[in-house]
Design a protein around this nucleic acid. Structure first.
Lengths: 137, 137
DNA sequence: CTATTTGCAAAGTGTTTGCAATGAC
DNA sequence: GTCATTGCAAACACTTTGCAAATAG
């Protein structure tokens, strides 16, 4: 019986390595929208020695395979999201957390062309101060 | 008779320096959504010696004053937009250009609160391959 | 004159790369 | 055995910082 991570790697056509399995397991169902560095730091705890190269390399292949998404919502670093169905994100300027938002399903998330440009990705980003940080202020 | 840049600086309450005037003039009506570095490089041509510190410092004050907007659409660098009315942007993955888009005016750009989070900024970002780059491919 | 602003250079943050060694198949 | 993948360490791109010198008001 193989786990989801292993099956997914096989499905994508990537070689199965413990590092990749660890990255995929960390991402599965993860709603924190981690950055590459936080993924690296986290996995270091279980795999002392895993390198940036491996993390970035793996993330890049997972993106190419459509398994995860890259978010440009955090100024200064990329965040990654294992949920690839279109949805909205909220970024808190105070704590840096990224939240999934159910916002406006009437949004034309299926536009394929506009002004002659080919549209591959549509991102709706909200920014402000999250509930928790508002309480603390 | 003072120019717009000078008036704007006075209005914001910033000291009028040639560097700031140059930055404001470069941004006025600029639709290329330049990065801090491209602004620096451009202004270096007329002001040899202008520093990163000054460019970043000035951009930061203009943002605080609400004169310009920061865009997180280009992975890896911040882009700046002198047009502060809500509108959509398209980013070309091939050439890196950012275009203004008239997209969907029915978008709820005026939401102030969602899930208890305070919303300050709403950004709708499209990504793909621009018209020109499609032709070349 | 005084507080702000500037230029410089160094440091900081996140990402990418080249390459020899390793390991999956 | 072969080729993809790894770890390392250095390079890279962009941004931020500390501080002395310059300058706007």
């Amino acid at each position: 019986m193989k786990d989801t991570a292993t099956l997914k790697l096989k499905e994508i056509g990537l070689k199965i390595t413990p590092q990749r399995q660890a990255i995929l397991k960390l991402l599965e169902g993860n709603q924190t929208h981690p950055s590459a560095e936080s993924i690296h730091t986290e996995i270091l705890k279980k795999y002392p020695g895993i390198s940036f190269a491996t993390v970035y390399n793996t993330l890049s292949k997972l993106i190419d395979a459509g398994e995860i998404r890259e978010l440009d919502i955090d100024p200064g670093k990329k965040r990654f999201d294992p949920c690839v169905t279109p949805h909205t994100h909220f970024y808190c300027k105070v704590c840096g957390k990224v939240f999934d938002i159910v916002y406006d399903t009437s949004l034309p998330f299926n536009v394929k062309k506009i002004d002659g440009h080919q549209v591959d990705v549509i991102q709706l980003h909200l920014k402000g101060v999250c509930r928790e940080c508002r309480k603390k202020q």
